[in-house]
Simulated assay, not measured.
Amino acid sequence: MIPDSNSYFSVPHNFNAYLSPWDASQGLPSEDELKDMQSVGLRLLTEVKNLEASCLLQLRHLDNDAKAVVDFLKLQSRKVDLVLQHVLEKEVQEGQQVSGNQFGGSGISITSSFALNVGDYHKTHLYLHTELVALLCICQVKQCTPINQDEPNQVPQWHCELEFSQILEDDIEQLVKASLAVQQKMLKKRKQNIDKQRR
């Protein structure tokens, strides 16, 4: 369960999510039950990422001569993550696909071709490709508003905000790190654009 829904910031980012209705009458799954619901591929990716993080943390304590080794290992671990995520995406996905447009440690914002009922729970698979994050969680719909409804030729769409109701602590950590990385990239890009305009 997430500690405080207001304790994390969100960043704009495009990603894929798959939603399956979750029957609230059966209650929310425990962390162990949520882990049991993960596919083999998802468990493998999580385990590999945890091992990588642990090893890289230990290597940071080595002297400057080890920097090249650390950089090389980071590159190798990224390659493994890419391959695992590719394999994961090839798995038969459960649920209806929606387009994510914002995420953080508290929840996600999506654009959907179907309306979601506020208060409903959904088992949710998230795939943040560029940040190499893939996870499973339970979300609750907090808001769902129609967009493009005034234009006759537009396909109906809804903008929905979902809050994490049950998510693993390691996955929150992954999302927080990913949101910081996305924010850094945005700031870097903005700085480059400002520098270009000054020339």
Rank of each mutant, 00 (worst) to 15 (best):
Val133His: 03
Leu59Tyr: 07
Asp63Met: 03
Asp36Trp: 00
Val133Arg: 02
Leu62Cys: 09
Glu151Asp: 15
Ser30Thr: 15
Ser165His: 05
Thr124Val: 03
Ile194Phe: 09
Asp195Tyr: 01
Ala178Lys: 01
Ser10Cys: 08
Pro21Phe: 00
Gln183Met: 04
Leu28Ala: 05
Gln140Lys: 13
Leu59Val: 04
Pro152Cys: 07
Val40Phe: 03
Gln93Val: 09
Lys74Leu: 11
Ser77His: 12
Ile108Glu: 08
Phe164Trp: 03
Gln97Glu: 14
Phe164Ala: 04
Gln26Thr: 09
Leu162Pro: 05
Ser10Trp: 01
Lys90Thr: 11
Glu163Arg: 07
Pro12Asn: 14
Trp22Gly: 02
Leu132Tyr: 11
Gly105Thr: 08
Cys160Lys: 05
His13Leu: 07
Glu31Tyr: 00
His122Ile: 04
Glu31Ile: 05
Gln174Ile: 01
Ser109Gly: 14
Met37Thr: 06
Asp170Val: 09
Leu51His: 06
His125Trp: 09
Ser112Pro: 03
Asn193Lys: 08
Gly41Cys: 06
Val11Ile: 13
Arg199His: 13
Trp22Arg: 09
Glu161Ser: 14
Arg190Gln: 15
Gln38Asn: 14
Leu88Lys: 01
Leu51Gln: 13
Ser7Asn: 09
Val70Arg: 08
Pro146Leu: 04
Lys188Thr: 11
Met186His: 14
Ser113Asn: 12
Asn117Gly: 08
Asn193Pro: 00
Glu161Pro: 00
Lys67Val: 13
Asp81Lys: 03
Asn148Gln: 11
Gln174Ala: 09
Val133Phe: 04
Phe114Gln: 14
Leu126Gly: 02
Ala24Lys: 14
Gln140Trp: 00
Glu151Tyr: 09
Val155Glu: 15
Ile147Cys: 02
His13Asp: 07
Gly107Met: 05
His129Thr: 13
Ile108Trp: 01
Lys49Met: 09
Val40Asn: 12
Leu57Lys: 15
Thr145Asn: 13
Ala178Met: 01
Asn153Ile: 06
Phe15Asp: 05
Thr124Asn: 00
Asp150Gln: 14
Ala53Leu: 02
Thr130Met: 04
Ile138Asn: 03
Leu19Ser: 05
Gly27Glu: 10
Ile2Ala: 07
Gln157Tyr: 02
Glu89Asp: 11
Ser77Cys: 09
His86Pro: 00
Glu33His: 07
Gln197Pro: 03
Glu173Ala: 13
Ser106Ile: 02
Arg190Glu: 15
Asn16Trp: 02
His122Arg: 06
His159Asp: 11
Gln157Lys: 14
His125Met: 08
Asp63Ile: 04
Ile172Ala: 04
Ser165Asn: 06
Lys177His: 13
Cys55Asn: 13
Arg190Cys: 03
Asp23Ser: 13
Val92Trp: 01
